[in-house]
Structures are given as structure tokens and as C-alpha cells.
Design a binder for these strands. Structure first.
Lengths: 231, 231
DNA sequence: CAATGTGAAAGACTTCACAGCC
DNA sequence: GGCTGTGAAGTCTTTCACATTG
């Protein structure tokens, strides 16, 4: 369930404030969801609340952590040490809760060998041995779009079964592998969409342009179709 | 509709390959969705396909761009120029499709004045004037968690109506403001969850721990409850 | 004939509302 | 009395399947 991490964070905050017990109403507000939804989500983990009282913060933290698999450490490798990869490697959120970055890999000889956030960048040729020797189970792809699928294939081949993809590509993987995608430009485009709605209203065609011509028949002469990536 | 940007990217790829026409089946595969879903999504924009033939790539690109508001430029400000903010400011995806980063703001005197990706970092005190003078409509929050809500409030007050939030906090905003959130550690936690499922099976309680004690009654003595953030 | 556009069915998720328990 | 846990209702999304059209 994708909301558990949000609840967990809210609970950690409460814990820091010294709160021992919380009602579904309060926790739901802190997490930004409806309280019935929260109760249903939590009831899926088992019954960890007390009627008339609420939930015990510390106990719930433990149960959710366990459900999420955060009671053990996960070994992470970051592939691609450009601006983004560097930012990710220094991100405190990794270390703090059960994620250990064990390798930074890059294809560029200019960055290989550099120390970043306490790790030495290694050459991507070592991908397979690094994944196996260090038991990497989660990989973060922060390469350019063009390299992502090839890197992904090698990761999967080497045994990685969870991938967090920052490259703007739809990765194709066997369905034993879990991929999550973070795409900055998609997020921005979604914001632009809503922004436009507000500004121009639903029919706000400020910019119709002279595109009508193309509709009719002005297609660029057709080119051989190349099979798209199989998803 | 949150899938339009994905279709748009797939269409751009096809365009580069010189493809003039595409069927829902092909485009759906490239975008990683079911073809019926794609057709329904597109039919919401109007009828831009030709039965028996498919969709004209170039025309569809235009229609989706228009729907998403990408036929005009959006002015973006990035708040917080740490590792992440720096990575974002250098991210090609911004510039390439209608997003112009017009300001980098930070509270830290050590970074104010530095030039990053062609822009000079300005002090956060200027937030209000920058937003108004440069007509910023989208802001990216890349500050530490603690600063995010305050920054957000100032942005909203200054007239920003779309926010992309990288800080691990649930922001509270009036519902005229659109917030999207990207949270790295949440993505990782979701991966860890699935990873655990695979490894241990549904009932794989490798780590039951001696937590039973706390369930019963061993609560830390209760502390005054502080009202959680209002969402 | 091939491929869109779309009712209708199926499914997933959310919310309501209240019985049951502390 | 207060709050959880949950059946039932409601809503939104996905998928199917096919009539329709160039």
C-alpha cells in the first residue's frame, strides 16, 4: 500500500513531539487523507488500534516498518553520477531509514574514481560484480534516457529486482521486477495543465495557431515504422 | 489527465524516428498502458484519430501539447539550492518543453550570489518581488523539510498557484493551489515493501522481535499532544 | 478490413455510517 | 462517550467487446 510510508512519516513526527497515542482523525489529518481510509488501511495490517482510545504511536511505527520491510537494511546502488545521481547519493533520507547506498556507478571516465558522499565512483563495467558481491537489491537509475534500458537490462540480469527510475523512459522488464518511476518533467507538465485550466478556463484557447492545415492532409511523407519498446 | 505527458513523450520519440502515423495499440505499448485506455484518454480531447488508420503523430503531439498548456511558456522558480536544487536547475527537461527557470532562491548566505546553471542565486527575502516581477507561476520547493511549509505559505501569498514539492512534508495549502509531491524515500520504501514480499513471502516474519511487551501497556508516559498540521 | 470511439461490465478505490468495543 | 473496524453504498477507473467508419 503506497500510503503507508506517508503514515509512517507522520508517526515519526508525532513520536518526536512525544505523542504516545493518536486517533485516526488526527493521524489522517497529518498525513493528508480521509480518516476512514486510514483506518481501513491500518486494519489491513491487523488490528493495532484500541477502540475509544486510538493508536499507540510507537507500536504502530513498528508494525508499519515491519510491513514495509524497514526492519532490515536494503542495499542500494546508484547508476549514473550526474547532477541528479550526486544529489541522490547525498540525500539523507536514504541512510536514515534502512537504505544503504553501497555503490555509485558511472560510464564516464572523468567521474570514475572520484569520491562522492563517502563513496568512490566505480566504472559501470563492474555492475555485475558489484551487484552480486554487495548483494544490491535496489538500484536507482539516474542515467541519461538513452542509456537507461541497457543499464536496466544488465541490472535485471545481475539479479536486481527493484528499480527506481529517474530516466524519462518507460523501462521494459520481466514482471518479476518492480519498477517505480520519478519523472520531473511529467510532474511539471501536470502542474502546467492545472495552471492552464485556472488561467484560461476549460475552453481557453488563447493559442489556436494555424494548425488546421496539418489536420487535413499535410503529413510528412511516411517513414518506415520502427517497433516501439515492448512494455 | 496524468497520462498525457507519457503519451506525449512516446509521440515525441516516434516523431524523431520519422513515424507519421501510429495505432492505439502501438502507442499504448510505447507508453506502457492498455490500448483501450489510451483510446479513451485521447477521445476525451476530441476525436483526433482516423478509423482504420490510427493517429497522426504530429497532429496528436500538437493537440496534447495544447491540452497540457505546453504551447505557452511557464516561469519556474526553484527554492532551495542544495544538492537537489542544483540538480534540478541543471535538468534539461525544464528548458526543453516550455518551462523556464527564472529564479534560484536560497536562505543560505554562502550560496546566495553564486552562479548556477546560468542563474545567480538570490536571497529568499526577495521571494515576493521575484515571484511578482517575473510572473512565476510554478515553484519548486527543494528546501529542507523544516522550511518547506513557511516557504510554501510565502509562495502562495505571493500568488504562486502550482507547487512541486520535494521536501518530505505534507504541505497545507488553500485548495486553489495545486501541489504535487516527489518523495524519494517514499518511493524507496514502496520498493522495499515489494522486495520484502518476494523474499519472505506473505507471511515471512523473519523478524518478529520482542515487541510484544509494548503492545500490552508499556507506553512512554504521555506527553502533551500538539495539533498536527492541518491538511 | 483495420482500427477508432464508446456503451456496458467489471473492478478498484473511497467514503459513509454505524455496530461493537474499550 | 469516544473511537476503531468494517459492511454497504457510492464513485471513479479500467477493461472488454463491438458497432461504426474511413
Amino acid at each position: 500500500m503506497a500510503r503507508l510510508p506517508v503514515y509512517l512519516r507522520a508517526l515519526h513526527n508525532l513520536q518526536e513531539l512525544g505523542v504516545a497515542t493518536v486517533s485516526s482523525e488526527e493521524l489522517a489529518a497529518a498525513a493528508g487523507v480521509n480518516s476512514a481510509k486510514l483506518r481501513k488501511d491500518l486494519s489491513h495490517l491487523g488490528s493495532y488500534g484500541t477502540r475509544g482510545v486510538g493508536y499507540q504511536v510507537e507500536y504502530l511505527v513498528y508494525q508499519i516498518s515491519r510491513e514495509l520491510g524497514l526492519t532490515q537494511d536494503w542495499v542500494v546502488a546508484i547508476i549514473g553520477v550526474g547532477n541528479l545521481g550526486r544529489a541522490l547519493s547525498g540525500y539523507g533520507g536514504f541512510a536514515s531509514r534502512g537504505f544503504r547506498v553501497a555503490a555509485l556507478l558511472d560510464a564516464d571516465a572523468k567521474v570514475v574514481g572520484r569520491r562522492i558522499s563517502g563513496l568512490t565512483v566505480e566504472h559501470i563495467d563492474k555492475l555485475e560484480t558489484v551487484v552480486k558481491d554487495r548483494e544490491v537489491s535496489i538500484a536507482v537509475i539516474a542515467t541519461p534516457a538513452g542509456a537507461a534500458q541497457a543499464v536496466c537490462d544488465r541490472l535485471v540480469e545481475a539479479g536486481v529486482t527493484s528499480i527506481l527510475n529517474f530516466a524519462p523512459v518507460v523501462l521494459s522488464v520481466p514482471d518479476t521486477v518492480e519498477v517505480r518511476k520519478v519523472d520531473l518533467s511529467i510532474e511539471l507538465q501536470i502542474l502546467a495543465f492545472h495552471e492552464q485550466r485556472k488561467a484560461g478556463g476549460p475552453m481557453g484557447d488563447r493559442l489556436v495557431g494555424d494548425y488546421g492545415a496539418l489536420r487535413a492532409d499535410e503529413s510528412p511523407e511516411s517513414a518506415p515504422y520502427v517497433e516501439a519498446v515492448d512494455a
